[in-house]
Design a protein around this nucleic acid. Structure first.
Length: 814
RNA sequence: GCGGGCGUGGUGGAAUUGGUAGACACGCCGGCCUUAGGAGCCGGUGGGCGAAAGCCCUUGGGGGUUCAAGUCCCUCCGCCCGCACCA
């Protein structure tokens, strides 16, 4: 008899064709059923999908299928984050229009996603570069502008000399461009910003309302960087100017012995003017400006600075303290000026040591301990009313006192900066405003949207957007007066595009509005979001900000976009990230065509916990292929050789064992998927069931083996949909995805007997069978009667017996 | 420096609340089948001693709590990730 052969290249396209032609995974917006929104982060289409994509969508698909089979209507859409620098840089080197290279890549993704059998609702697909999408990105921008949440400002910005564009703070990693690695420079330019800082507190607070991994929440908290303290005013009497500083340590105000300003502080040159230090200050400031952010940020190097030749008054004691300019003070945090307390701050201490400035102790024990001391303690040598007060309390007391005197107040500062969104690049969403000689900056009215991205010949960056060269496009008319106007030539950061795409999926074909609020109410928020941890702060913070801003403007009725988040680990090879330069890339295409999509998907889920990095093994993936083949062969052999029969009324011992295993597997897989994303152990349970089917195959009747084999197929469906559908179909001629998720029979989960572990002094000495309903004293007696327990207890005094019902008995002897 | 995570056989990993360490799989070894196998099937596989029964050791190192510790506590070592002159 010839064995049927497991041939994924025949099975997979056959089922894909059914899902495609029947539009199996499409959902309507007006269903009354309970909904679930499962979403994987949208891919950036570049080249073809890699293993990371396969992992992302294999996880999401398993979740989507699992919830569908629990009766949920699952929205599971797909699209493409299609604007961006790689396509544009490719265009610069090859001359191929980004639209063409992007289209080619999107097609590659579409082909692969279909070959992988991912259950997407394709009817809602779009790319963020399509006018029907970015029209609404522009609409949102105008709403933010109208609300004052988008604004233009000249600012020292991060400039990437290689990509010739501005970068957001979040895109600068260790002083280098996130994309190309070039050393980032600072430039003064007028740029577009979004006022994310207005939302700092809410972005922080609402982290408590969402089911996200703790480490991602921590990263966002750190990035938002909330500090509580005080704003205290120091006055320069000579010039009559007040300088507020932010401090988290108002308790140390009496220890302030000097005052430091950032080189970028607008008053530095003015303060030094006319003093003997004027020249030195000029030199220091221009030297600091020339430095890279990386050099500036080096904490290891010695503190430098120059005296400004002026003093300010310490508001707590009237003392005149000298002013300095020093590059360890940052303009972008606080007020760009600090009070320096060398006795209780390491940086100030270093500076004081280098410049011979006084160091004063105002916290802790006067007699002992080295300075600087940054710990807690009572105040000393401050002022009678505060001396002896624990410094934590003194903070409050000193703030109150200053506040009463009008010289300070409690204040909160955030590390978070406003989001710089303008890019001097071509391949992005045009910013829908014009500049009119008469009316200045004029937002375009809705009816002029979308502002279409024109074609240009030359994409090479020249310090201004390539769009500036498209004269016909730039020259336009003012919507207010009809006079000549020029279009904004910067484009938007692509993170703007991806900050709301999940909303558009809900109502992707709405030509009247970005979305219908009632449709969003039906689906949003996303119930399960899945993606890489590399987006922990950028995308995930921006999207949260967008939702809050749009909710405030009355366009949404919820506060958070992603109710639950799962961050997957990387697929590595030989312990390293897969990369062309390392030559360790495994292409999903090669694996899928050789072994099938189900094998690749299952292997990636089986390899380890999905939130951890996992190392690809060529041998491992073969093993998964063998398992799927065994399960599929089991199903077709059983289908061919046994009649359909009900489960036996009185199962023989082998039948009972197999029925129990099947029910155990149902219970195991269900809880592994419902409670956590333990796909690896869920698949292991299906393997155990399959092995058990094969082992007991000859000892059980048709009803039992059919039940066990089809249960295995049914449980496998979320991971290997084609193989599972085919196996299930051969056994029952039914569609497994239309079947409800199997339910374990509690009667078969319980056993009337179990193996009692018999310990002596905590060491396993024997095992005996015991009835599940045995009393504690019966279990104790059973254990004490076990042969090897007797041998170890013999001649010793029994001090104690611990009984754990259903598990073990531990006899403690002396 | 601060914050987060991790350390288990030759390998990936398992061990929901402290209760049989090593599920499942890879690899390896042996066997069956075969003209052949990169196919399939069966058996073995943490280390040590032993013919066997069995005994001892074993979850990065050390210490502690407990009848019982991979799991809890302290301490040290190593690795990974995030932030970093943020006042």
């Amino acid at each position: 008899m010839s064995e049927p052969r497991y041939d994924p290249s025949e099975i997979e396209p056959r089922w894909q064709a059914i899902w495609e032609s029947e539009r199996t995974w499409e959902v309507r917006n007006d269903d009354a059923a309970e909904t679930t929104y499962v979403l994987e982060m949208l891919p950036y289409p570049s080249g073809e999908p890699h293993m990371g994509h396969l992992k992302n969508y294999a996880i999401g698909d398993a979740v989507a299928h699992f919830r569908r089979r629990h009766g949920r209507h699952v929205l599971h859409p797909i699209g493409y984050d299609a604007f961006g620098l790689p396509a544009e840089n490719h265009a610069i080197s090859t001359g191929v229009h980004p639209r063409d290279s992007t289209a080619a890549s999107i097609e590659a993704f579409q082909v692969d996603f279909r070959r992988w059998g991912i259950s997407f609702d394709w009817s809602r697909e779009f790319g963020t570069h399509e006018p029907r999408y970015y029209r609404w990105t522009q609409w949102i921008f105008l709403k933010l502008l109208e609300a004052g949440l988008a604004y233009r400002k000249e600012a020292a910005v991060n400039w990437c000399p290689n990509d010739a564009t501005v970068l957001a703070n979040e895109q600068v990693i260790d002083g280098r461009c996130e994309r190309c690695g070039a050393q980032v420079e600072l430039r003064q330019l007028e740029q577009w910003f979004l006022r994310i800082t207005d939302y700092a507190q809410r972005l922080l607070d609402d982290l408590d309302t969402i089911a996200w991994p703790e480490h991602v929440k921590t990263m966002q908290r750190n990035w938002i960087g909330r500090s509580e303290g005080a704003e205290v005013t120091f006055r320069c009497e000579e010039l009559g100017i007040d300088y507020p500083v932010f401090t988290t340590r108002p308790d140390t105000l009496f220890g302030a012995t000097f005052f430091v300003m950032a080189p970028e502080h607008p008053d530095v040159l003015r303060l030094a003017a006319g003093t003997e230090n004027e020249r030195a200050v000029h030199e220091y400031v221009s030297g600091a400006m020339r430095e890279t952010p990386e050099e500036r940020g080096d904490t290891a190097r010695a503190k430098t600075g120059v005296a400004l030749g002026r003093t300010v008054t310490n508001p707590v004691n009237g003392e005149q303290i000298p002013m300095f300019v020093a590059d360890y003070v940052l303009m972008e945090y606080g007020t760009g000026a600090i009070m320096a307390v060398p006795g209780h701050d390491e940086r100030d201490f270093e500076f004081a040591a280098a410049f011979g400035l006084p160091v004063r102790r105002v916290i802790g024990d006067r007699t002992g301990g080295e300075l600087p001391y940054t710990g807690e303690g009572p105040l000393v040598d401050s002022q009678e009313r505060f001396d002896g007060l624990p410094n934590i309390e003194a903070k409050r007391a000193i703030i109150d006192w200053l506040d009463g005197a009008g010289r300070g107040r409690a204040a909160v500062h955030f590390r978070l900066r406003d989001w710089l969104i303008s890019r001097q690049r071509y391949w992005g969403c045009p910013i829908p405003v014009v500049y009119c000689a008469e009316h200045g900056l004029v937002p375009l009215p809705d009816e002029q949207l979308p502002v279409l991205l024109p074609d240009v010949e030359d994409y090479a960056p020249k310090g201004r957007s390539p769009l500036a060269a498209a004269e016909d496009w730039v020259a336009t008319t003012c919507p207010t007066c009809g006079g000549p106007a020029r279009r904004e030539t910067d484009t938007m950061d692509t993170f703007v595009d991806s900050s709301w795409y999940f909303l558009r999926y809900c109502d992707a074909h709405n030509d009247e509005a970005a979305w219908d609020p009632s449709v969003l109410a039906h689906w949003m928020p996303v119930d399960q979001y899945i993606g890489g941890v590399e987006h922990a702060i950028l995308h995930l913070l921006y999207a949260r900000f967008f939702i809050k801003a749009l909710a405030d403007l009355g366009h949404l009725s919820f506060q958070e976009p992603f109710a639950a988040l799962f961050t997957q680990g990387m697929i590595t090879r030989d312990g390293a990230k897969m990369s062309k330069s390392r030559g360790n890339v495994v292409s999903p295409r090669a694996i899928v065509s050789r072994l099938g999509a189900d094998t690749a998907r299952c292997y990636i889920l089986f390899i380890g916990p999905p939130d951890q990095d996992a190392d690809w093994s060529d041998d491992g993936v073969e093993g998964m292929h063998r398992f799927l083949a065994r399960l599929w062969r089991l199903a077709s052999n059983v289908a061919a050789s046994t009649p359909e029969e009900p489960l036996p009324q009185e199962p023989n011992p082998a039948e009972l064992e197999l029925l129990r295993k099947a029910n155990w597997a149902i219970d195991k897989v269900t809880s592994e998927l419902a409670g956590r994303f333990a796909f690896n152990t869920a698949i292991a349970a299906i393997m155990e069931l399959t092995n058990e089917c094969n082992r007991l195959r000859e000892q059980v009747g048709p009803g039992t083996i059919r039940f066990a084999a089809s249960t295995a197929a049914s449980l496998l469906f979320p991971f290997a949909p084609h193989t599972a559908a085919d196996a299930y179909d051969s056994l029952h001629a039914r569609r497994v995805w239309e079947e409800p998720w199997p339910q374990a029979d509690p009667a078969l989960l319980a056993r009337e007997e179990f193996e009692l572990v018999c310990q002596v002094n905590g060491r396993v000495r024997d095992r005996v069978m015991a009835r599940s309903d045995a009393s504690e004293s019966e279990l104790e007696a059973l254990c004490l009667g076990a042969p090897n327990v007797l041998a170890h207890v013999d001649g010793k005094e029994i001090a104690k017996v611990v009984v754990v019902a259903g598990k073990l008995v531990n006899v403690v002897v002396r």
